[in-house]
Design a protein around this nucleic acid. Sequence first.
DNA 1: ATGATAGGCAACTAAAAGGTTGCATGTCAA
DNA 2: TTGACATGCAACCTTTTAGTTGCCTATCAT
Lengths: 104, 104
Amino acid sequence: MDEVFKALADGSRRALLDRLHARNGQTLSDLCDGLAMTRQAVTKHLAILEAANLVATVKHGREKLHYLNPVPIHEIGERWIRKFERGRLAALGDLKRKLETRDE
Amino acid sequence: MDEVFKALADGSRRALLDRLHARNGQTLSDLCDGLAMTRQAVTKHLAILEAANLVATVKHGREKLHYLNPVPIHEIGERWIRKFERGRLAALGDLKRKLETRDE
DNA sequence: ATGATAGGCAACTAAAAGGTTGCATGTCAA
DNA sequence: TTGACATGCAACCTTTTAGTTGCCTATCAT
């Protein structure tokens, strides 16, 4: 789980996931296209995404195809974000109350 | 949004949010309690959480009370994770297909 | 076979992150 | 008012991160 959060912390990596979300199964060169980064930098980002299991790759001849694995993102939604949904309104209530009554 | 992702990337900070989720409105000393970190380290983490708007504070005499702000987490759920929910089954399909047919 | 294309590996650098120590300040309680 | 408690500030250190450059390897098309 920590690896996933860390992987998602970087904007470039989130952009790569966005790209794969828009079109799945792209090659490394595809993914580099138009980015202000060297190919090697992108490779490293993809390696981190792969280690976090957010991306899976398949070699196809001299190309490496990248596929989005949506499961870890889904799990963060389910197991982590949902936890804070419960009690969300209560927390907002606490906050509002405390911010309003400075003279308590 | 980037600040929120970055703030959530660290396990200690997520633990602090957990603590506030369990009991809202804790002081700095409360939050330090039982952690293998100096108070100053915790202060820094809280500052990052505050900058990301995940925590709001109210000074109360010599104490500083920390309140969870659940809104940014909720927004990440709504605006980011939900995007990947759409097309999630399609992506899983792509992935399964590609992983199975290595002889394509 | 040979050149172009797709990608891999390794060493290096700069900056940011996470943490520490030491000291200063503000507030409460006796 | 004085000591104890709660927090703030700043300098410093170490490790990680994000990125680079340079070169090597594998595959495809002609």
